[in-house]
Simulated assay, not measured.
Amino acid sequence: MSSSNVPPHPSARLWDISPTVAPEAPVFPGDEPYSLRWTAQLSPGYPVNLSAITMSPHVGAHADAPLHYANDAPAIDEVPLDTYLGRCRVIHAIGAAPLITVAHLQHAGQDLPPRVLVRCCERADTAWNPTFTAYAPEAIEWLAVRGVKLIGIDTPSVDPADSKALSSHQQLKRLDLRVLENLVLDDVPEGDYELIALPLKLQGACASPVRAVLREIQ
């Protein structure tokens, strides 16, 4: 029986691996930052507070849709959800730069589950850092050959900030993998967990924010 079919133990620990979405959250230069405005507020004539938000779907922890890096590819509301839920391995590659390579992953590559998140930051960046670590395309292929269907990273992208070819995103397309970016893995020990990181059903969108959590397997 897979872990996703086993009821969680009531004392199973949760790790929140999502950064706070706020106006100061780092975004790619030119991308739409998060902003919030109040459209109605509690008053004698109004019974509730109401707000409206504006943001790129790539702010904070998020799932890219294939549409993000390929025309005529599925938008985020068309992507099956099962990949974003289930057994996951966190692999530490702290200090890996500028790319996560196969060599950074091999120590934890035995019997990989379908989901792998790589921690390469000692502490996740809270301001824009143009030299963040990304994935080498060869590392993505190495994971896919071992049955991995979703990869994640604690930086803004699987490709370097200055990449125009987006070789790692194109590798995701070729191998039909899903991806989570901008995670916070600062306090997560290396090992296996249950991942819960469902994207919103945003019609036609190239990505979606996720509230990504890891749950202890007991």
Rank of each mutant, 00 (worst) to 15 (best):
S167I: 12
S168G: 10
S51N: 11
A207Q: 02
R123W: 10
G60A: 05
P199A: 02
V48P: 04
L42E: 08
V210A: 06
I196A: 12
I94F: 11
I196D: 09
P10L: 02
A96M: 14
A70K: 14
D192K: 03
A40R: 15
M55N: 06
P66Y: 08
T83G: 15
K164M: 08
L67Q: 07
I151L: 03
R87L: 07
P113E: 13
R211I: 15
I17Q: 13
D159F: 01
D162V: 08
C121Y: 01
L105N: 04
L177Y: 00
V79G: 01
H104C: 12
C206D: 09
A108L: 13
A139N: 01
S208N: 05
A207Y: 07
L200F: 15
V90S: 04
R123V: 14
A61C: 00
G109R: 09
P44I: 09
L172E: 00
V59D: 00
G86S: 01
V148E: 04
I151A: 12
E122I: 10
W15R: 07
S4H: 13
A108Y: 11
I153H: 11
R178V: 01
I94Q: 13
P7T: 03
T133S: 10
I76Q: 04
A139R: 05
A144G: 03
D82I: 05
P7H: 01
E32A: 13
S18A: 15
V6P: 11
L67A: 07
V148G: 02
C88H: 07
L177Q: 10
P10W: 06
S167F: 13
E24F: 15
I91E: 02
N71F: 03
C88L: 07
L166N: 09
A63W: 05
D16N: 15
R115S: 07
V148T: 06
T83F: 13
N5F: 13
G152I: 00
T39C: 07
